[in-house]
Nucleic acid binder design. Structure first.
Lengths: 248, 248
DNA sequence: TATAGTTGTCTATATCAATAGACAAATTTT
DNA sequence: AAAATTTGTCTATTGATATAGACAACTATA
């Protein structure tokens, strides 16, 4: 699709080798190369992008370092295919249910938790007074042992006292909320954006520096419209795409 | 929110000045700086990010060039605030309807059109045979004279012969489809991803090199489920966020 | 008016990024 | 076995990136 013959920009603060590495990743995710297929030779890539062979080699070296490619002297450079997860989002989306069939194992790991006063934004979203105590959870979503998301979520500390323990134990938001008498909930709103991953997310999701993350900011509510959870989730764009179902 | 004290990565192919420029943009979009507010002095920013003052100056120079900031010798550097558009997407979203109240003028400009054989992906999405003729439209969405999106859309050439003329004339997909007897349609599926903007999109949307775009790939269908349109849209992440309504 | 704070400009230096060319090492093809 | 193809390594050169320090120009404040 887009980016067939799309070229490379110079002098923009992003090095050529990184741009080319991004293009190769994009190609892999977009299905330009089959599983275990050989990349075009370095000279061919250099010609295609109008750069020196050594620049292409820098890009490939970075991807080899990240475990995306494997280079073999005399034979070629091969794709270690990691296809992108397609993550459904909608009113009833849960972390684990949507990924059925795509992965064999998934859960949410609790990285840290804290109780803090609510900022104005969070207080408004949760229907609390500004400065009211809220519990903040820092979590990482994992599928088949690979990190696929990083989230920061806030709950009313009074109503959900001890939810961090439930999360650590069950590895599931849905299961944790059940302990507080909430058997079903809906996504009231979701706002989507994208940016470069910050240093913390790079570490938590084992990303290459400069990686792009999709960001969702969502409010979950009970069936009668009571807000219970405010969450900002980050998904690495190279590993995950978000899918909106029609009538969800 | 995220990225309060988040630091800067070195030797990753993205120059420090661009990373800092991105952070400042993020801060503006995230509301860290009020309208027309002064940025912290260069020395303060240099300390915060652990870089030399000249590096901060490079970042600021790029943003001044892009019209995001205004620097005044002896006084400070000021934000020329451009708040982000919130773009709703859902089953019934139309380009113009969703932005009501946020902008005064919006339309879609037709940049170019072509008739070509359908790739496998597009043929499948539109329910055509591979290689069947399809019309490709390259369009740009504009709000208040500013480009806010760039899209590539495909239609069955047989059924929608001449739709490029209708688009050029009406500046609206919805109005154009009306001429072919389609008064209503739904978004069957939407897939979201993010990447760096390619060279063409940089020019078309007047973006700074290295900008991030949100990408949606959607199939629109008639009310009885017949696919009529396949579209890939790109939104600059610095100007646009995507909003999912609950029951849409 | 004097002082402090801020942006603008200049010189200098070290490292990274990119280009260029040559050849070695390994593999596949002829 | 020989030739062609492809990745790996080396040297060298140029321009962009980043750091460092000094001082000028301008603004606001004491």
């Amino acid at each position: 699709m887009a980016g067939l013959a799309s070229s490379i920009e110079r002098r923009n603060g992003v090095s050529l080798w990184r741009q080319i590495a991004d293009k190769i990743l994009q190609g892999i995710a977009g299905g330009d190369f089959a599983e275990n297929a050989a990349l075009p030779p370095e000279m061919a890539l250099a010609e295609r992008y109008g750069v020196n062979r050594h620049t292409v080699r820098s890009a490939i070296a970075a991807l080899v370092q990240d475990g995306v490619l494997r280079a073999e002297q005399g034979r070629g450079t091969f794709v270690l295919s990691r296809k992108r997860l397609s993550y459904p989002i909608g009113a009833r989306t849960r972390f684990s249910t949507g990924l059925q069939g795509q992965t064999s194992e998934r859960h949410i790991a609790l990285l840290s938790s804290a109780t803090e006063p609510a900022s104005r934004r969070i207080a408004e979203a949760l229907g609390l007074a500004k400065g009211a105590a809220v519990i903040r959870l820092e979590t990482r979503g994992e599928a088949d042992g690979h990190p696929v998301s990083r989230a920061t979520t806030w709950f009313d500390a009074k109503r959900f006292a001890g939810i961090e323990a439930a999360m650590a134990e069950t590895g599931s938001i849905t299961a944790s909320l059940k302990r507080f008498g909430i058997n079903d909930y809906l996504r009231q709103s979701t706002v989507l954006s994208a940016r470069h991953a910050d240093a913390d997310d790079l570490v938590a999701m084992e990303l290459q520096p400069g990686a792009i993350v999709l960001v969702t900011v969502a409010v979950n509510v009970t069936l009668d419209g009571q807000p219970i959870q405010f969450a900002e989730s980050r998904f690495p764009a190279e590993r995950v795409e978000l899918r909106l179902s029609a009538g969800d």
